[in-house]
């Protein structure tokens, strides 16, 4: 992909962003520098992770860089952002150290199932049965289960990043709207409150909708603008985080 950005555009956008804090400008800056993320992510592509995932991880670094960049600096934004993006990618691999190593075959199947599940859910008007998924994917039920379990394992560290199926999802911040999770709903659980406070807003919302509003994963997925599988991963990771937090050692 050829880059469509110029330094002047970047400077101009940053000037507006700092004045207005407009999320659309932030998005525009992110889009403008996506080629940089792609370029840097490719440097890590031989380590067995899907390139899409790496680009997502790198995008998190890019957003951090956008938020921190000081226009008064003499450096170009791309120069400033590069170590932040690379740092995010390195951290991703470092964090993965403990995670189960998932064979590429399963990673790919997991990504494919994501799409199939979304399709089936739409067609059936409900969450599909495992045999239905297996049939649609042309694999055995065993493989479906295996891929779903592995999907869990391999995304346990990458959930800050949007998942690959979210590319065309509307801006998440816009979708949460009135269902925004309010901490006082959970203040009752005094020991958990400090932990829940550490969760990103989206995760808090998901936690609230699933466990306190009894909403299904599919409905939450619709509401938040991510896939059902992504909601599933987030829920599992949130619970894991809260459990570790109760034991005293947690970092989200």
């Amino acid at each position: 992909m050829t880059t469509g950005y110029t330094r002047d555009d970047t400077k101009r956008l940053f000037a507006v962003l700092r004045q207005t804090n407009d999320p659309e400008i932030r998005d525009a800056l992110a889009k403008l520098h996506l080629p940089l993320v792609e370029y840097l992510a490719k440097r890590f592509k031989d380590r067995g992770e899907p390139l899409d995932d790496l680009i997502q991880v790198g995008s998190v670094g890019l957003l951090k860089a956008i938020d921190r960049f000081d226009l008064g600096r003499e450096v170009e934004f791309s120069t400033y952002a590069t170590p932040t993006i690379v740092g995010e990618l390195k951290r991703y691999f470092r964090d993965k150290g403990w995670a189960v190593r998932v064979p590429r075959r399963l990673q790919e199947l997991s990504l494919r199932l994501n799409k199939i599940i979304a399709q089936l859910t739409q067609e059936l008007g409900r969450s599909p049965l495992i045999p239905e998924i297996a049939k649609a994917a042309g694999v055995s039920e065993e493989e479906v289960l295996e891929a779903l379990e592995s999907g869990q394992a391999y995304s346990t560290t990458s959930l800050d990043a949007p998942s690959s199926d979210d590319d065309d999802a509307p801006n998440r911040g816009d979708r949460l709207g009135e269902e925004d999770f309010r901490l006082d709903n959970l203040e009752y659980f005094a020991s958990l409150a400090p932990l829940i406070e550490q969760l990103p807003e989206r995760e808090r919302t998901i936690l609230y909708l699933r466990f306190f509003r009894g909403m299904t994963q599919s409905r939450i997925a619709e509401q938040v603008g991510i896939s059902q599988m992504h909601v599933s991963r987030l829920l599992n990771r949130i619970l894991e985080f809260l459990r570790q937090g109760m034991e005293g050692e947690a970092q989200y």
């Binding site: 599940i117 409900r126 969450s127 599909p128 049965l129 495992i130 998924i133 039920e141 479906v144 289960l145 779903l148 379990e149 299904t216 994963q217 599919s218 059902q228 599933s232 829920l235 599992n236 619970l239």
Partner: peptide, 27 residues
Amino acid sequence: RTAVGGYAARDRFTLEQVDDLRMAVEE
């Protein structure tokens, strides 16, 4: 967690229900 997932998947439970069961058993 894996055991209940495997069991439920062979019965007529939807993907989300299987996931619920795994999470519930873990909890």
